[in-house]
Write a protein that binds this DNA or RNA. Structure first.
Lengths: 176, 176
DNA sequence: TATTGTTATACTCTATAACTATA
DNA sequence: TATAGTTATAGAGTATAACAATA
């Protein structure tokens, strides 16, 4: 049986973030809302896994993931750019991970203002388990989609990213 | 000039959420991270616009958007499903909008447990201005991408949504 | 003067669980 | 018994702005 809203109209089996945009709306609006819906669905699933199985969060995972690829560490400002959040947030997340013994701060030799963040051996081991579960969950989620479609989608999203980046940058560099 | 990380390696002009996933990673992981990156870029841009120009937030916009398509109102539980968040959150957002005179709660005739949320005339007028700005911003962001690519992307995301939905639902219905 | 990172503040969103009032 | 919504709690992320240390 189909769901219906208060109007009694059929709105589809699964109302979600994009269901307010009718078919006559501009394709760009519908596209964005569908993108947001997919992203929310996946993010909710992954957040749940990370929390239930490891008691950790997505931003913490993201930060460790970047560190895991930079054996010699990363500066706070690099992490800020990679995670696409402001500097103060990175301080907070690094604080938590440091408290848990998963990362460490070291003063940079060249520039004494900046510190270099690295995974500790424990952090490295912990992240290995974490990322295994993460990868498994992502693989499971995407498994019903055939490989060709995934590759097409990957390529189209590259196009999209290229299209929006300059404008998003302009925003971030706007006067405040 | 290209950016480089602490290792001195070229990491691309614009490090972001997907830059830790190397080309030899599974396509599903790379795809998810790119999706997340695009979603974050756009969401940050829109959040900034909504905040700077109207002092409001994306969840509030989303909620009003759904209401704007349901002239006779929506139940709290319907809103919860549409925004893909839990019930308590909807109470909070509706509280704020009600305080600002943008929405109103009415008791349902049929079931006195539930209330029906509607935009007030002021809310309707306010949302019109809001959504104009929102649509313009989205249109601007997507404008460098040709229409055919947008349509292809839209269709592929439908496939993705169909693929992940059953699993995401299973999660939401799992015992707690 | 500009940059790196921290601190302090305030706000928003989020999930969970206990609760009420209805059904 | 089950459902609709609220309340209370706790925690996480976020931006902004002011600040210290260094470049």
């Amino acid at each position: 049986m189909k769901d219906s809203n208060s109007l009694g109209l059929i709105v589809g089996e699964h109302p979600d973030r994009e269901s307010w945009a009718h078919p006559d709306e501009a394709i760009n609006l519908r596209l964005w809302l569908r993108l947001a819906t997919c992203s929310t669905l996946i993010e909710n699933a992954l957040r749940g896994s990370m929390r239930a199985d490891f008691g950790t969060t997505l931003p913490r995972f993201d930060l460790m993931a970047h560190l895991s690829r930079s054996p010699r560490g990363m500066k706070m400002s690099e992490l800020s750019r990679c995670l696409m959040v402001t500097n103060g947030n990175i301080t907070g997340i690094v604080d938590q991970l440091e408290r848990d013994g998963l990362v460490e701060r070291n003063k940079a030799n060249t520039d004494r203002r900046s510190s270099v963040i690295m995974l500790t051996p424990e952090g490295r081991q912990y992240f290995r388990r974490l990322s295994e579960a993460y990868r498994a969950r992502v693989a499971e989620l995407f498994s019903p989609m055939d490989n060709e479609a995934q590759n097409d989608l990957f390529a189209l999203l590259a196009k999209l990213k290229e299209a929006i980046r300059p404008q998003c940058q302009a925003i971030n560099e706007a006067p405040r």
